[in-house]
Nucleic acid binder design. Structure first.
Length: 562
DNA sequence: CCTCCTTGTCATCTA
DNA sequence: TCTAGATGACAAGGA
């Protein structure tokens, strides 16, 4: 069993590595996972069962959530009636909800069943190879079943989003105090969607729980969590029945977009959690702590590049998932060029040991803690760790890497999101449209970090260039239209002239005809001394410039002056 | 899946 | 030398 587990772990590592190498190309994980391929057949058989299960789950979710939600008339979103409750919008899609439920439920169940670290939870990974001591001995057969179910879940195409959504889950799981504003839950609502259902104290189908608990207990070995050193969670969870609520509320309302309020809530929650013994290196793995963005140029929250950047987790899958989330979200705080830096950084991270990686993340954690714990005033200066502006010779990474704005801040442009992320106190519109003098005056009123200055300059440059490009294109189109109009006019004129020429030609032909007739008529009336008519072959009539007409012999015609 | 169009962005040149 | 504008080129996303 141990050997099997070790081999499986090695396989999983190789799979992870291969998969991450090609994830940019759109390759799915199962492409590299022979185990999953081998079980396709079994998964097919279980799909039906699983779909039914999902439907049931969704129904339960909706019932439970609708009971706990109230519609915010202002935002049109559902917010929890109580801070501790999770929210779910009506439009939550069942597969995603289920997928997220997997994580959330897993975490929620952890306190009740096993000691486990939520930070390491991820459903986008196949369960880590369990060592015998990690698996409950009596459930060996059940575990196999569970694993099948788990892999089936992962194989479902709709659940592929788990890779991302759970990253977001980890991101959203940023610790947040319950009293944070409930309206801003754009990112987090879906993750909490299924939580109430999955909680044991809520009306949750035992069938579903049976199906879910197993995988989780399998993924999160009950005895193993003591090594995970998130003591605060472990200590709190079993003894405190409200832990789940508190924990889930942390999912709510966490905007990791550099929003000041979010930062504050994060810091508050951090303070709460940090009040207990905790290993930050473990916490750092949680996406919640990629708050280094707050100090750096935060803007790439809409980037999709992070997904593929994720360092190859040489470790267990859940950890990897958290790492992935951390780096997927790392883009939040960096500019485009910094995204590239992030790419390279993560690339180097691939080669770094886990310890170094952990340290690095710790740095991120502390840098993220800095602004929120030290000062909450706006605009806060960037942390010293902020990345320098891109080198002049270094080609800038086009912003086209960015995804369109997500649900959150969907109405904001990318630059607006970046400005918000870096807490630029001026509206983007002003930054762009203000005259130079006013702009300089405005800038002189505030103290900006290098990153903020760079961002503001970029925003102004991009904004102006955007307008210039629009004008340029407009002019180009107008020129084209004008040229086409000119072309049309010229064609018309040409047609008119050709018509005129034809008329003139016809007129000329007519005149020639008349002239010939007249000539012959005059010539035939001429008589010589003998009264005989002149031969047209020997004589011709010629007219001089003064109008006089002479009869000229053709032999002398060449010398005659007309 | 491919093509076309629109738009944002960057690099570069010019005034 | 710096800045703003103009424009070609490229890429992403949508129809």
């Amino acid at each position: 069993m141990e050997i099997e587990a070790a081999a499986a772990a090695q396989d999983m590592n190789l799979i992870d590595i291969l998969w991450r190498q090609d994830i940019d190309l759109g390759a799915r994980r199962e492409v590299f996972d022979s185990r999953q391929r081998q079980k396709e057949y079994e998964l097919e058989k279980q799909k039906k069962l699983e779909k039914e299960r999902q439907e049931q789950l969704q129904k339960e979710q909706e019932e439970a959530l609708l009971a706990q939600l109230e519609l915010d008339e202002e935002t049109g979103e559902f917010i929890p009636v109580q801070p501790a409750q999770c929210i779910q919008p009506e439009n939550t899609e069942p597969p995603i909800g289920f997928a997220q439920a997997s994580s959330a439920a897993f975490q929620s169940l952890v306190p009740a069943q096993v000691n486990s670290n939520p930070a390491f939870v991820s459903s986008d990974q196949t369960p880590p190879p369990e060592s015998p001591d990690l698996v409950q001995p009596t459930d060996a057969e059940n575990m196999q079943n569970i694993e099948q179910v788990w892999e089936e879940l992962l194989s479902l195409s709709e659940l592929q989003c788990l890779n991302i959504e759970n990253d977001n889950l980890a991101e959203v799981s940023t610790v947040t105090s319950p009293e944070t504003k409930p309206a801003e839950m754009h990112n987090s609502y879906s993750y909490c969607s299924s939580v109430p259902v999955l909680r044991k104290d809520v009306n949750c189908g035992p069938d579903f729980l049976d199906g879910m608990e197993g995988p989780f207990s399998g993924i999160l070995p009950p005895e193993d969590t003591s090594q995970l050193s998130v003591n605060s969670l472990n200590d709190t969870s079993p003894s405190n029945p409200d832990f789940c609520e508190d924990f889930y509320t942390t999912f709510i309302d966490t905007k990791v977009n550099g929003d000041a309020a979010a930062t504050n809530t994060i810091s508050q929650s951090l303070a709460e959690i940090l009040s207990e013994p905790i290993d930050l290196s473990d916490f750092a793995l949680c996406k919640a702590f990629n708050g280094n963005h707050s100090g750096t140029r935060a803007e790439c929250n809409d980037s999709d590049s992070g997904i593929s950047l994720n360092a190859s987790s040489s470790v267990a899958s859940p950890e990897h998932s958290v790492e992935s989330t951390a780096y997927a979200d790392k883009t939040l705080g960096c500019s485009d060029s910094e995204m590239e830096d992030t790419d390279s950084a993560s690339g180097s991270m691939l080669q770094s040991s886990a310890g170094l990686y952990s340290l690095h993340l710790q740095d991120q954690v502390f840098s993220s803690l800095g602004p929120s714990t030290q000062t909450s005033s706006l605009p806060h200066t960037a942390t010293p760790k902020k990345e320098p502006p891109p080198a002049p010779g270094q080609p800038r990474v086009p912003f086209t890497k960015d995804k369109p704005p997500g649900r959150l801040d969907a109405h904001l442009t990318r630059d607006e999101q970046r400005a918000r992320a870096l807490q630029i106190p001026f509206p983007v519109e002003k930054i762009i449209n203000l005259p130079v003098a006013d702009f300089s005056e405005m800038m002189s009123k505030e103290q900006f970090s290098e990153a903020q200055l760079t961002l503001i300059r970029d925003i102004r440059r991009r904004g102006k260039n955007k307008v210039a490009a629009q004008n340029c294109r407009k002019r180009k189109l107008e020129n084209i239209v004008e040229l086409e109009h000119d072309l049309s006019n010229l064609k018309d004129e040409k047609e008119k002239l050709l018509k005129e020429k034809g008329e003139h030609d016809r007129s000329l032909h007519q005149m020639k005809k008349q002239f010939t007739t007249l000539y012959l008529e005059v010539f035939s009336m001429l008589r010589d001394e003998d009264g005989k008519p002149y031969s047209p072959s020997e004589y011709s009539l010629q007219q001089t410039r003064d109008g006089n007409v002479f009869l000229v012999p053709k032999s002398r015609q060449s010398g005659t002056k007309l």
